[in-house]
Design a protein around this nucleic acid. Structure first.
Length: 905
RNA sequence: GGGAGCAUAGCUCAGUUGGUUCAGAGCAUCUGCCUUACAAGCAGAGGGUCCGCGGUUCGAGCCCGUGUGCUCCCACCA
């Protein structure tokens, strides 16, 4: 069948992905082979594929496909994360658009909508991964809220509670007033914002004419002030300590206290203490036995509930339900009315925002569930040790620092969220707030009886905690639970596939996810969860900006795949992807991918043209000890070259230098195979090709496609099937790759020399503007080792378009000269056109030779200087000196040859 | 405030233990070519004070110090 002009990616992608799937090539079951396991970092169930996913999953697919082709039992597990806060926010939004308020729904009703949403949109991102060609084991698709998974999360919670690692407590937490939930420290992102520093005057209680001025960025919290704090050594305020001042508007008398925490240099050196709305204030408050007066509700609006004892004024009551930012303005205005604002300065401050909703975080006192991470880490010291001693290898290595820093400064993890979408906390309460932790109500009642010695009041009913668990409290079990390692410990799958091999993920979730998976691995499997972690950088646009929906600089991946083909997109992103660094992505890289595909496709077309034109009777011998025939040098050389590059690529894979591996293969195919090898074996126009050479060429092509296949799976499978008629089940996806064999340096050197010689010949041709039909009469080669040309002279003649080749030891007068490696080239041209152009050509060539000569002389003098330096000769290694001597001799020989040529011109 | 990383051609980046002609690759640019696989191509060419300064060394893109400029992480000085 006639091949299309270019590679047609659409048909090919559809055909092969369906075929691979049908053949279950990506499905893995435990067997005698060595496993290679990768678990996908589960994307948000409602997410869509973006460039970050593209990079991340392409890398995983490359690793998995390569492992599969190396004969390992490769298993790549797909799945999604329920992403509690993100998904819940989306569902709430969707309901709002329908005119339904979350507050008007029961928990079950809400979850009904959420599951409906999940069923509808949950599979999209997985379908998109198929488009990208990802060889995931779809039979193992997991979801962090699957029934078993859910139970496992609960089981772990109960277990850690029993071990005393999980506790409930009233603590300052990061509160998201938009999501109306607590967040862990990791979910808070600090941003620098322009704000104001307000200097507020607090009158002294004893003497209303005197004021204490306090600088604050948050005047809206003033009504919650319970003290003013100064540094004990601050001379300005020593006399004030122990006295009282009056809080503006609310007119509360509060003490002036002293604590070394205060920085006398900042603002006025006096700090107002609001224990209900600031973490540090809260600590100070506890230390000095101060009350915490809450003045903001869960939505960040003013509330006077804690102020009722003080008979709040009309003004204070008028603040009720006013949003915190509006409140700030109002209070500042009202204090200004009282003449108690001294001044307002511009100020740049850090403000915490919610990772998911973007809302400014409030510190809020709240009863939440926590995990004592220090204690947990003490139980599992391997968590840090295994990474630091490279048992778990981080790539790039610098990420180890980040990891160790976080672990050594680890804080308690707030794991409860005031959300419904997620695993509901298995704690059960009576009306008084006494609680037990258990998986079911029945179990809870039993425990209650044991703990409190009686039936739960209220007819034996306990009510379950309304909150659910942080998403990461489920995803940290991912590498185990996708193999049911928690819900069904010791099963065949988990024993075979765990620990997994490589984790590929972003540096941004090293704490959220990677660290916690390692801890969980040691706690529940007494083993590391993976052996290598490959951290990808961030995908940025070519201006270096993060890709984001807001900026509109994030391309639609499916459109790209449609336009360029999945192979080209994969190629593009890998080609511009330095390991572990951020990558500047530009749509142009897809062009390069497409061009490369086109190049390979055309090579296929060329080879296919020879298919029917083979003649047998070949003397081809490329293996064994016999001296190969001259005309088969091309085959001999490429075989060696292939093995050389294979070894290189194997090393690059070992070091996870995937981008470089791709570049190496790219150059092997484009330069060595297409530009050199195929030209060397290409028969003349309408001429037949040696059948054995043809077979070897197809073999090479096949091996090249195997090397490339992990990067661009579709075109390589397509070409594999075009090259030969295949038996059922003979597909590149599952074909085992041959590893590198030894190669002969001598052959490679001759190949390199041959390339140089051909280039030198072309150079002369180009300079003398020879037409393709015009032949070089004689090629003179001045060399001391003419034997090295035994194998290559035929190719040399053909490739330079020469009629004859002569070896000489002397310069050849009246010829054109082209230095090539360690030899000299003299070209005698006898054509109609040369005579009229030769004088011009000679001048040109004289100039070039002169330039070459100047360079060589400069080079020689630098080498001579080096060798003339006694200290160099004394100190340098012998081999370095020998190299310098050889450089000197070579340069001298060349200079002599060029001078002779110049003289003869 | 603490820590980490980066700086090499117009752009994106390689450059391993300090020593081969080491100053590289791809893209972009320029010059020739529609040569019977490929113009999405072929054959060539130009382009760099290896961020500045100082040091170690026979020898530094590479090691040390220092300055500058970027990036990231950690840390709620109100």
């Amino acid at each position: 069948m006639e091949l299309s002009k270019n590679f047609e990616h659409k048909a090919s992608e559809e055909k092969w992905y369906g075929y691979w799937n049908e053949k279950k090539y990506f499905h893995s079951t435990p067997d005698g082979r060595e496993p290679y396991t990768v678990v996908i970092p589960p994307p948000n169930v409602t997410g869509v594929l973006h460039m970050g996913h593209c990079l991340n999953n392409t890398i995983q697919d490359i690793l998995v496909r390569r492992a599969r082709m190396m004969g390992k039992n490769a298993c790549w597990v797909p799945g999604t994360d329920h992403a509690s806060i993100a998904t819940e926010a989306k569902v709430v939004q969707m309901l709002r658009e329908k005119g339904i308020q979350k507050a008007s729904l029961s928990r079950d009703e809400f979850l009904g909508y959420a599951w409906e949403w999940k069923e509808k949109y949950g599979g999209i991102i997985l379908q998109q991964l198929k488009k990208l060609g990802c060889s995931l084991d779809w039979g193992r698709t997991s979801f962090t809220m699957d029934e078993d998974y859910y139970k496992s999360v609960i089981k772990v919670f109960i277990d850690l509670h029993e071990k005393g690692i999980i506790y409930r407590g009233l603590r300052m937490v990061n509160w998201d007033p938009v999501g109306k939930t607590a967040l862990s420290d990791e979910e808070v992102i600090f941003k620098e914002i322009d704000s104001k520093l307000y200097y507020v005057k607090y009158p002294l209680a004893d003497d209303g004419s005197k004021f204490m001025t306090v600088a604050t960025t948050r005047p809206e919290t003033i009504l919650g002030d319970v003290a003013i704090c100064v540094h004990p050594a601050d001379e300005r305020y020593k006399a004030w300590i122990g006295k009282e001042v009056i809080v503006p508007i609310i007119n509360r008398r509060i003490p002036i206290i002293a604590d070394e925490y205060v920085d006398a240099e900042f603002g006025t050196g006096a700090l107002k203490i609001t224990p209900a709305h600031d973490k540090n204030d809260n600590e100070l408050g506890r230390k000095h036995n101060l009350k915490a007066l809450n003045t903001l509700d869960e939505e960040g609006r003013f509330t006077s509930v804690d102020l009722t004892d003080e008979n709040p004024s009309e003004l204070v009551l008028s603040y009720n339900k006013v949003d915190r930012f509006e409140l700030r303005k109002k209070i500042v205005d009202d204090i200004a009315q009282l003449n108690q604002i001294e001044k307002i300065e511009d100020y740049k401050g850090q403000v915490g925002t919610s990772e998911r909703t973007g809302a400014v975080i409030e510190s809020r006192l709240s009863l939440q569930w926590f995990m004592n991470m220090k204690e947990f880490l003490n139980r599992n010291p391997e968590t840090l040790r295994s990474v630091m001693n490279d048992e778990i290898k981080f790539h790039p290595e610098k990420t180890k620092n980040t990891y160790s820093h976080w672990l050594t400064n680890i804080k308690d993890w707030c794991i409860s969220r005031q959300l419904w979408w997620g695993q509901q906390i298995p704690a059960w309460y009576d009306a008084e707030g006494n609680y037990v932790v258990a998986a079911t109500h029945d179990e809870a009642v039993k425990q209650y009886k044991a703990k409190y010695g009686q039936q739960p009041p209220n007819n034996g009913q306990l009510s379950q905690d309304e909150d659910c668990l942080d998403t990461w409290f489920s995803s940290w079990l991912w590498p185990m639970e996708v193999f049911k390692g928690i819900s069904n410990p010791g099963n065949k799958d988990v024993e075979y596939y765990y620990p997994t091999s490589t984790l590929v993920t972003g540096q941004d979730i090293i704490f959220f996810w990677v660290a916690r998976m390692i801890m969980a691995g040691y706690e529940y499997k007494q083993e590391l969860p993976f052996k290598d972690v490959y951290f990808t950088g961030m995908v940025r646009d070519k201006l270096g900006r993060k890709m984001s929906k807001q900026l509109g600089n994030s391309p639609d991946l499916l459109e790209l795949i449609d336009k360029y083909g999945a192979d080209a997109v994969r190629f593009g992103i890998m080609f511009s992807s330095p390991a572990g660094n951020d990558l500047m992505w530009d749509e142009g890289s897809n062009d390069q991918g497409r061009n490369f595909n086109n190049k390979i496709w055309n090579a296929l077309k060329l080879v296919k043209m020879w298919e029917g034109k083979q003649v047998t009777g070949s003397t081809l011998q490329v293996t064994g000890n016999k001296q190969p025939e001259t005309e088969n040098f091309a085959v001999l050389w490429f075989e060696n070259r292939l093995n050389e590059v294979k070894a290189e690529v194997e090393q690059q894979f070992k070091e996870f230098r995937l981008s470089e591996a791709l570049k190496t293969i790219y150059s092997l195919i484009w330069d060595d195979f297409c530009s050199w090898y195929l030209e060397w074996v290409k028969p003349g126009f309408e001429q037949p090709i040696d059948a054995a050479v043809y077979e070897k060429t197809v073999d090479f092509f096949e091996e090249l496609m195997q090397m490339l296949h992990p990067f661009t799976p579709f075109i390589t499978e397509e070409i594999y099937h075009e090259l030969r008629v295949r038996k059922e089940g003979d597909d590149i996806t599952i074909k085992t790759m041959k590893t590198s064999k030894s190669f002969d340096e001598k052959i490679l050197k001759r190949g390199a020399q041959l390339k140089q010689d051909i280039t030198a010949g072309r150079d002369v041709r180009a300079n003398q503007q020879l037409k393709k039909s015009e032949k070089i009469d004689t090629l003179f080669i001045k060399t001391e080792d003419k034997d090295q040309y035994n194998l290559t002279s035929t190719i040399l003649l053909q490739q330079t378009g020469s009629l004859e080749i002569h070896f000489t030891e002397d310069p050849v007068p009246n010829t054109f000269v082209g230095p090539s490696g360690s030899t000299m080239f003299y070209v005698a041209i006898k054509t109609n056109s040369t005579e009229k152009e030769s004088s011009e050509g000679l001048i040109k060539q004289k100039k070039r030779l002169q330039e070459e000569l100047d360079y060589l002389k400069g080079f020689l003098s630098s080498v001579e200087k080096k060798l003339g330096n006694e200290r160099f000769v004394q100190n340098a290694k012998q081999e370095v000196i020998d190299i310098e001597r050889k450089k000197k001799a070579d340069a001298e020989a060349k200079i002599r040859a060029i001078e002779e040529s110049l003289a003869s011109l």
